[in-house]
Computed example of a mutant assay.
Amino acid sequence: MAVFGSRVAVLEKRIYRDSRLRGVAFTTICVGAATGIGLAAHRLTRDRPIARTVVTAAATWAVLGGTTLAKEGVHMAGSLEAGDLAAARERLPHLCGRDPSRLDESELARATVESIAENTSDAVVAPLFWGAVAGVPGLLAYRAINTLDAMVGHRSPRYNRFGWASARLDDVANFVPARLTGLLTSALAPVAGGSPRRALAALRRDGHRHPSPNAGRCEAAFAGALGVRLGGVNDYGGRLEHRPELGDGPRPAVADVRRSVRLARAVSLSAVALAVGARLLRRA
């Protein structure tokens, strides 16, 4: 997907205008191209089951980011456990876009837990969901949508209009997967020493309070499962965003980072099992 990102960046330079219409055209071209490649691969392997399996496996490997997410979480946990805040601050941009320069241990832990919660859906559950629904075209289309949202979907003077279509399309694509992530997180809360009832209560009570229609579901469920309180003021390079509090209990501590990684891995494995089961049922 790095190749896709570089091509998108080139196209953006050529097509960019501070206009929603240009943004719609940009999004349509990028997502259409990725979907077209997926459809071509689907048709070329229609009567070749071994080739279809290889292509599906390759596409799935290319779009999933669960292993990288867990690895970054473990790195952050190690730095925080060692008391090396400089290393943790240097590592945080691998997980999110917040300014880490003034974050203390607790805020670094909170940022990590929130990023792991949201990205468990974005990097694992959502692509698997769309792969189960639409095969290789669904996998590639979703990853294109999510990549565009990361590149141009954030609120800033440059992308407020141009990135509108990419951001809204990402909201639609993640609507079901985010809620599935919340439910899986609640069910698997005991993996992190939590309570399914408490996680589900936080999901139902607080999930809608987040400014994102989807991220809040994931973060609220993780907060309930871990027994912590997420949300607060986030600094994105001088742009401050005040997020509502999600869950009850204390702010995340260093130990909660590894618990969140363990929970994310369990949710990811469950999502894999569900996706495989759904595809087998469709074939049957």
Rank of each mutant, 00 (worst) to 15 (best):
R168D: 00
M1S: 06
R22T: 10
A255Q: 09
A40L: 10
L44V: 11
R205V: 10
V191K: 14
D170T: 12
Y159W: 10
P100K: 13
A192Q: 12
L200Q: 10
A70G: 09
A82C: 01
L80H: 05
E72R: 02
R89V: 08
A201I: 04
D206T: 06
L139Y: 09
R17A: 14
A25L: 07
D256I: 14
P100W: 13
M151I: 08
T112Y: 14
V54S: 04
R22D: 02
R179Q: 00
G131R: 12
D84H: 09
L200C: 15
R197E: 15
R229V: 04
T147V: 14
A86V: 14
V113T: 07
F129G: 00
L39H: 04
T27N: 09
Y159G: 01
C96I: 14
A223N: 01
L184K: 15
A111L: 00
A40S: 04
V133Y: 12
R265S: 11
A178S: 12
G224W: 15
V74A: 02
A150F: 00
A86M: 04
F26P: 02
A271L: 06
C96A: 10
G216P: 03
P49I: 00
E105T: 13
L128W: 00
A275Q: 05
R7V: 09
L108H: 05
T181F: 04
A275D: 09
G36H: 03
A40Q: 01
R91P: 05
A77T: 05
A141N: 05
F222Y: 12
A57K: 03
A2V: 13
I50D: 11
Y16K: 03
N119C: 05
V3W: 11
L128N: 09
A40T: 08
S115K: 13
V172A: 06
G247D: 11
S212T: 06
G224C: 06
D256P: 02
A221I: 13
D206L: 11
A25G: 07
E114T: 15
G36K: 01
C30F: 09
L263W: 07
G182Y: 14
A255L: 03
A59M: 04
E245C: 00
N214C: 11
H210R: 09
N234D: 06
F175L: 13
D171M: 13
T67K: 11
G231C: 01
W164R: 15
A25V: 08
